[in-house]
Design a protein around this nucleic acid. Sequence first.
DNA 1: GGAACTCGCCAC
DNA 2: AAACGTGGCGAGTTCC
Length: 456
Amino acid sequence: MIYNPHTKDAFDLLMAGSLALQKAEQNGFRIDTDYCTRKIHQLERKMVSLEEEFKETSFFRHWEHSTSGKVNINSPTQLSNYLYNIKKLKPAKLTETGKGSTDEEALDALNIPELKALAQKGKLKKCKDVLQGFMTEQVDGVLHPSYNLHLVVSYRSSSNSPNMQNLSKRDPEALKIIRTAIIPREGNQLMEVDFKQAEVCANACYNKDENLIEYLSDPDKDMHRDMAVQIFKLDEYDKSIHKGLRYTAKNGFVFPQFYGDYYKNCANNMACTQGQLPQGKWKTGQGVQFGETFLSDHLISKGIKSFDNFTDHIKEIEDDFWGNRFPEYAEWKDIWWKTYKKYGYVSFLNGFMCQGVMNKKEVCNYPGQALGFHFLLWVFIETSKLAEKEKLQSMLIGQVHDSEILDLHPDEAEYLQEKINKIATEDLPNHWKFINIPLVVEFEKYKINGSWAEKE
DNA sequence: GGAACTCGCCAC
DNA sequence: AAACGTGGCGAGTTCC
């Protein structure tokens, strides 16, 4: 993979970008070191008791008894060997190299209650490791992560020492443990500025799909909602009841499809992993509940009576998705792939290019990933310039692909929100004329003197 | 005794 | 025909 900015504009974006990021690295994230120390000890105590609980199970005693050396309960290799070679259990799934998997999903499928304490200990250990990482990296109570612009094939950024781009957010318990450690400067508050659907917007700039543009331009339209209605055959969408199904449609169908996944994986993920339904024929009272209804009862009432029925249904939806809903997007993928095969490289809208050996999915995914991040990088640079020019007390401290994080002085909140909104929604589309959809940013503020776990 | 690999899991 | 894109990191394990 060879890639380089091949216009001055692209070169300038990376130059200005690295300077703005350097400034943010220098500012850094303030952390509560006393909290980290306390929490690490507390987590260690909980881990010890969970480990003791696990070691009293007959499951563990049998594992120990049937192993020649010393058992390391933290070793996925040893666990895999015990479960699949010694006990001869059938793995629910295999790893990349063809061995029996011991990830959460695979272990859940085995239905061994004794493993629950072990899994819980693993989760706490991950949290502890993050907090310990913070303590290792902090200088006078401040984290100075590195943000890299030169490491990611798709032109996104990466972060390390510590990685501030993968802090827990989905799991509420892990979110609280980890993000309570991140605090603003005295009297300040943390604020995130997020692009709404950055990568989808970026893709629309390339494929110019009429219906996709319509979805992104009309605030009342919502593709994830529409897909939930279609996938689960809802008579009408009720936010208070069907929010979870919308989430499943978004993360189990729309995004995987955009990245190149296919109906079988999507069906399995949505029905089994997220919907909690079994592989075969469905019975009454199975699966996740929404409102008063079980998923199995609802789908059966709509004529989808088994996993195989559901898979056929998702196959039809996939055909409809690319054939009728976003046909120009599908066409763009083919043209884009042909262009790459003809010339051996592809040129991006904002002056970057990539060449080298790539498959179709890579070739079709990189432009959107790059541009989505470059929307943010452009805003980041302008925000940084603004803070310097106006000698603001607020400071940029980090970035997560489509969002920027500020350590905000409350007196400057209103001013900055107005300015950043203008930069993102007016100045940016003015700078890159190929932007063919309205860009939207959302602001999330956290409590004054409160941590990154306490929304305002 | 360290480099390289594998696995699992967090984010977008 | 096959089948999810981009990262970082820790721990365990294997290779040299």
